[in-house]
């Protein structure tokens, strides 16, 4: 009898709490204390010692915290001069120094890990995100004259070297060629990319996937290595009606869903992490939303592990077993570090 009861409890437990049992909150940063207060976190990265660097777009500042989440230093204020940031910071990256992509000021700020500014690098075009490896900086930007995106390779002084990955998803071809259609094809061809810290390999995926998740692997110099394909966790076709633009006279299907891969991160040489949102709709209303972490094998594209993310957030960085998530929702924005053990 007791055995049966235990068995039942175990089964219930498995079915009730399997979702994020392997995701442990390590540190949470964000409160009403002035040194821990954020107004709109734009990026966060982890270093090898577990320190966290956080840039806040609305507050125009960059901060460093130690691995226990203790405040160490802050720099920045709003402006265009030395030591100042705009209020449209697009990204933060750590690679032999910190790189802040300050879109509003049209420049990259390079700093050491003590938050001392080394130099400013002028941007030649609007970049959406920044990455780096060894002597290369990588930036995602729009391909001139085309409705697609590319990864640009730059040297450490911001001089353009070359571009690669000028593709767009197959479903984009079906878009009617109106002005609004062109604007939407730009949106739906958006990409996310990551750089492996040890090898410099670049992995790129479409943010709005079609029937499968496609991940394209390139060497650090932009030479194509391999395309890997991963299955969706639900049966999914990219709903055509979403490509039509503003749903003014549109009749929505009874049931549909929408998937977005918000970001991709390299955990190590074997594994990639995808930030994977699924929204389920009844007509035009969202009835269910979930955010997952998908871990896929870099060589086969096979799903290794999946985990529900417990808060409405975005993943800013991931390194080995650690995941750095940003949440700007609720009264107090916060940055949470998780440890993923599975």
């Amino acid at each position: 009898m007791i055995k049966k009861l235990l068995c039942l409890i175990t089964i219930l437990a498995i079915f009730h709490f399997p979702s994020y049992a392997d995701l442990k909150k390590v540190v949470s940063i964000g409160s009403d204390d002035i040194n821990y207060r954020f107004f709109g976190v734009a990026g966060a990265v982890l270093d090898d010692q577990g320190n966290v660097y956080i840039c806040d777009s609305k507050g125009s500042f960059l901060r460093k915290y130690d691995s226990d989440g203790k405040f160490i230093k802050e720099i920045g204020r709003y402006g265009q001069g030395p030591g100042e940031f705009s209020n449209t910071i697009s990204g933060l990256y750590l690679c032999d120094g910190l790189f802040v992509l300050d879109t509003g000021n049209n420049r990259i700020v390079e700093l050491d890990q003590e938050l001392n500014i080394r130099r400013y690098i002028k941007l030649s075009k609007l970049a959406l995100s920044i990455m780096g490896f060894s002597d290369n900086l990588y930036m995602i930007s729009r391909t001139p004259g085309r409705f697609s995106f590319e990864v640009g390779v730059y040297d450490r002084n911001g001089n353009y070297i070359k571009s690669f990955f000028d593709r767009r998803p197959v479903f984009i071809e079906r878009i009617e060629q109106s002005k609004i259609g062109q604007a939407l094809s730009l949106i739906y061809s958006s990409i996310a990319a990551t750089v492996e810290r040890e090898t410099g390999e670049v992995a790129i995926t479409f943010q709005w996937p079609g029937e499968n998740i496609e991940i394209f692997r390139f060497s650090k110099d932009g030479e194509f290595i391999k395309k890997i394909v991963s299955d969706h966790i639900i049966k999914y076709d990219f709903p055509e009606f979403r490509l039509k633009g503003l749903p003014t006279n549109l009749r929505f299907p009874d049931q549909s869903n929408l998937i977005m891969i918000r970001s991709i991160h390299s955990l190590d040489e074997k594994r990639l992490l995808l930030e994977y949102w699924v929204n389920e709709y009844n007509l035009d209303k969202v009835v269910k939303e979930n955010e997952y972490i998908l871990i896929v094998d870099r060589n086969s594209g096979q799903l290794v592990h999946r985990e529900l993310l417990p808060l409405k957030s975005g993943i800013a960085d991931a390194r080995k077993s650690y995941i750095c998530a940003i949440s700007n929702e609720g009264d107090v924005p916060e940055v949470v570090i998780y440890r993923l053990d599975y």
Binding site: G40, A42, T88, S90, T103, L126, L128, S141, R142, L186, I187, S190, L258, I259, M260, R262, W277, N279, V286, E289, E291, K312, S313, G314, N328, E329
Partner: peptide, 15 residues
């Protein structure tokens, strides 16, 4: 580009 990829970035939910 700015509106979609910088401004809208604050919204995590796809909807």
């Amino acid at each position: 580009e700015w509106c979609v990829f910088t401004y809208c970035r604050q919204y995590y939910n796809p909807d």
